[in-house]
C-alpha cells in the first residue's frame, strides 16, 4: 500500500484501541476502547499510574506492539486496523515516526552526531547530507559542541537531547516519548519537556509524551490521562 501523508490531517488519530494479553483465565486487558487524536504542532501529555496502559498505547501507536482491535491513522494514513498493519511498519517508522525514551538508548559505539546521522542513513539519506543535518539538529538542541563525543562522555540531559535530535532526524509527523525525563532532575526534565514543545511548534510535528512528572504540565497543549487501560480523562489546558 502506498503511504500518503496529509499535512492537514491530525498527527495521530486512534479509534477504539484495545489490547488484550493472554486468554481465558490469564487474560489481561491492558488497553480498552481508547479513542483520541493529536494534531500536528501540538504536544500532548499522557499521564497515569504504572500499569495504566500508557506504554501499551504508545507501543501501539509506534507500530511496535499491535493492538488487538481498533484503528490507528497517522497523518491521515490508516496504518493499523485491529492487529493487522496496513503499511510496511518498519518503513513507516523510518519515515514518519520519531522515538524518545526514559533512557536515551543511544548506540554506544557511535558519536552523538553519528547517532543522529544513522537514523537518516537508515532512511536512505546520503551520508554527507545526513551528517550536515545531524550537526544542524545538535546545534538546534544545544549540544552541537558535543557532536563528536561518544554517549558515555555525555551527561544524561545531553544524551536525551541527542536522542531528541535523532527522533527529529527524518522530519517525522509524530514523535513518541516514553517518560523521557524520568532519569533527569527537575530542571533538566523541564528543559527536555520545553524542547518537545519547541519541536512540536517549530517542526510542525505531533508529540505525545508519556510522563509521571506533573511539575511541567504547563508545557503541554493537551493532557490525556489513563487509568486501568482506559482513557479516563482529557484536558486541554490551552483551550
Amino acid at each position: 500500500m502506498k503511504i500518503k501523508i496529509n499535512p492537514d490531517a491530525p498527527a495521530v488519530e486512534v479509534r477504539s484501541l484495545t489490547k488484550v494479553y493472554g486468554s481465558g483465565n490469564t487474560e489481561v486487558v491492558a488497553m480498552k476502547d481508547v479513542t483520541f487524536s493529536v494534531r500536528r504542532g501540538r504536544v500532548a501529555a499522557l499521564l497515569g499510574p504504572s500499569g495504566a496502559g500508557k506504554s501499551t498505547l504508545l507501543g501501539a501507536i509506534g507500530l511496535i506492539n499491535p493492538p488487538t482491535s481498533g484503528s490507528i491513522a497517522i497523518g491521515g494514513c490508516q496504518v493499523m486496523k485491529d492487529s493487522s498493519p496496513l503499511v510496511d511498519v518498519r518503513a513507516f517508522r523510518r519515515k514518519y515516526l520519531g522515538f524518545a525514551f526514559q533512557k536515551a538508548n543511544l548506540i554506544p559505539f557511535l558519536t552523538a552526531v553519528e547517532n543522529v546521522q544513522v537514523a537518516m542513513e537508515i532512511n536512505n539519506i546520503p551520508p554527507r547530507k545526513a551528517r550536515k543535518r545531524a550537526f544542524e539538529l545538535l546545534d538546534y538542541l544545544g549540544v552541537g559542541n558535543r557532536a563528536d563525543n561518544l554517549p558515555s562522555m555525555l551527561s544524561g540531559g545531553q544524551q536525551q537531547r541527542v536522542a531528541v535530535a535523532r527522533a527529529l532526524a527524518n522530519n517525522p509527523s509524530l514523535i513518541l516519548a516514553d517518560e523521557p525525563t524520568a532519569a533527569l532532575d527537575s530542571y533538566r526534565g523541564r528543559q527536555v519537556m520545553e524542547l518537545f514543545r519547541k519541536v512540536a511548534h517549530e517542526q510542525n510535528a505531533g508529540v505525545i509524551v508519556v510522563t509521571h512528572d506533573h511539575r511541567a504540565l504547563d508545557v503541554f497543549d493537551e493532557i490525556f490521562e489513563m487509568e486501568d487501560g482506559a482513557l479516563r480523562f482529557s484536558n486541554h489546558p490551552t483551550s
Binding site: 518498519r90 518503513a91 513507516f92 522515538f99 538508548n105 554506544p108 544513522v118 537514523a119 537508515i122 535523532r166
Partner: peptide, 16 residues
C-alpha cells in the same frame, strides 16, 4: 541486543 532493537525501531532494514 538493545542497539539492534533500537535500529529496528528506527526502521533499519534486516540487510543492515
Amino acid at each position: 541486543v538493545h542497539d539492534i532493537a533500537m535500529l529496528k525501531l528506527m526502521g533499519a532494514q534486516n540487510s543492515m
